[in-house]
């Protein structure tokens, strides 16, 4: 497509970015890298509030399911390079990962937070994490 002869008026930029597809959240990040003023629009709290209202709530990014006895998996549902893959949850902050990864089982969710419990069959590090 040919480059635009005219540039967009500033107050139309947020109207356009507001309409980026909610099933492709990465498109917001790519837009933020276009120029600083776009990043400014996208990171504004008012814009984020409008975005949620406009698309009737935040998008469903994926599902968390206990697919095995050992760990919960996050299955992305949005367009992303990770689509079709699953992620097993394990503690990211552990500086020395054990030979056998510690799995976390999802116990419950409330208000966007997830309660996880260590693999009940694991031998190390038992506990809950939010």
């Amino acid at each position: 497509m040919a480059a635009a002869a005219v540039t967009l008026v500033d107050d139309l930029v947020d109207e356009i970015l507001l309409r980026l597809p909610p099933f492709d959240p990465a498109s917001l990040l790519r837009a933020a890298l276009v120029c600083k003023s776009w990043r400014h629009v996208l990171s504004d709290a008012c814009f984020r509030r409008r975005l949620r209202e406009f698309h009737r709530g935040p998008p469903l990014l994926g599902l968390l399911c206990n697919l095995s006895d050992h760990a919960a998996s996050f299955v992305p549902t949005t367009m992303s390079p990770f689509r079709g893959r699953r992620f097993v949850l394990s503690p990211a902050s552990n500086p020395r990962p054990p030979r056998r990864p510690i799995g976390w089982l999802a116990i419950d969710t409330r208000h966007g937070r997830v309660l996880l419990h260590t693999d009940p069959h694991g031998t190390v590090q038992r506990g809950f994490i939010m």
């Binding site: 635009a4 002869a5 967009l8 837009a31 276009v34 120029c35």
Partner: peptide, 15 residues
């Protein structure tokens, strides 16, 4: 990509 978007919208990269 951000580069392609800049081209379509005639935007200068200020990063």
């Amino acid at each position: 990509s951000p580069d392609q978007i800049r081209e379509v919208f005639n935007i200068k990269n200020d990063y």
